[in-house]
């Protein structure tokens, strides 16, 4: 009798686990298609970045120091997001919320620096209207910034959900997807940092 009850619980747990892995796979497929979107924007940037139309080039325009700080901030936020997932798996609600709040603060700092840079470029007359190079730059980096904004909104929603409902199975699953999204954005940023900022400074 007892054996039967255990196996029933085991079956239930197995089904839930399969459901989790299926939704995570679906989200993974979405992330991979998003990668294709970013790849096309990178291709546009690679083709257009010499077309400055008499305006400034990447070397004259970008501050490598700010880009490094942005990179380190985003990297740290990716790390704290990972800590949040570990805390959630240990069912530590307080630590989870703290780690994700840190992630949000770092994400906001990153977004602030990026918007500040965009504002500066627009004020000195080098907005997306200046040249093909700047159009492709604003599209590529702006799309990444838009993803970061969506990720931050998602984090706010998840924190409210966890605050109210606790670390339920469905909340942990959604939190895992959010962490995948956030790590994915960090991966995209490596390439923006390398292709736009570092190679721009080299003058490639």
């Amino acid at each position: 009798m007892e054996e039967k009850a255990i196996s029933a619980a085991e079956v239930k747990r197995q089904t839930a686990r399969e459901e989790d892995s299926r939704s995570l796979l679906g989200f993974w497929v979405y992330l991979m298609t998003d990668c294709v979107l970013f790849a096309s924007l990178f291709a546009v940037y690679a083709v257009l970045h010499h077309n400055t139309f008499g305006g400034p080039s990447a070397k004259e325009l970008f501050n490598l120091h700010t880009a490094l700080i942005e990179t380190l901030i985003l990297l740290t936020s990716s790390f704290s997001c990972g800590l949040g997932i570990v805390a959630a798996q240990r069912r530590n609600k307080k630590l989870t919320i703290m780690a994700f709040c840190l992630t949000m603060v770092l994400g906001l700092a990153f977004l602030g620096l990026e918007l500040n840079e965009f504002h500066h470029l627009a004020v000195i007359g080098d907005s997306w209207r200046r040249s093909g190079f700047l159009s492709s730059y604003f599209t590529l980096v702006g799309t990444h910034g838009l993803h970061i904004t969506v990720g931050l909104l998602w984090m706010v929603v998840m924190m409210l959900r966890i605050q109210r409902g606790g670390l339920t199975r469905s909340n942990i699953r959604k939190l895992t997807m959010l962490s995948l999204f956030w790590h994915f954005l960090d991966v995209i940023w490596i390439f923006i940092f390398t292709v736009v900022y570092l190679m721009g400074a080299i003058g490639a």
Binding site: F79, G82, V86
Partner: peptide, 25 residues
């Protein structure tokens, strides 16, 4: 184990980022 992979990944990523930055500057 998961925590260890996050720490290792973070340290390696920071190292690689700073190395690339120093090469260029």
């Amino acid at each position: 184990n998961r925590l260890a992979t996050y720490v290792a990944g973070y340290i390696l990523s920071v190292g690689l980022t700073v190395a690339a930055y120093l090469i260029v500057t």
